[in-house]
């Protein structure tokens, strides 16, 4: 059960820390991270495995969205399948 977490924000200290702390708390495993700066915007994409997550997907998603609001980050959480469907044949 894999999901993609996409985060965009103006670059500030501690974005990765905040998100990964939350994921660790939920027992969600980070499989891959890529990050880049696009036109002064910090863009981070995480591939995570939530198979062993302590909370259901909906709760995980709401938690991350809430974290996004608190830290002024734009966060999208979606199951990986939609990206595979669109971009891989």
């Amino acid at each position: 059960m894999k999901a993609i977490i996409a985060i965009t924000a103006t670059d500030t200290v501690g974005i990765i820390a905040a998100v990964s702390t939350y994921l660790a708390k939920c027992n969600v495993n980070i499989l891959d991270i890529s990050q880049t700066i696009m036109r002064d915007h910090f863009v981070m994409i995480m591939l995570v495995d939530y198979q062993k997550s302590k909370v259901p997907f909906d709760t995980l998603r709401t938690g991350l969205l809430q974290l996004g609001q608190e830290q002024a980050l734009s966060i999208h959480v979606q199951r990986e399948d939609i990206f595979n469907a669109m971009h891989r044949i």
Partner: peptide, 14 residues
């Protein structure tokens, strides 16, 4: 399988 590239992910979101 490796993660899909950032550009494709952002394109879908957009």
């Amino acid at each position: 399988m490796a993660m899909i590239n950032t550009g494709d992910i952002l394109q879908t979101i957009q």
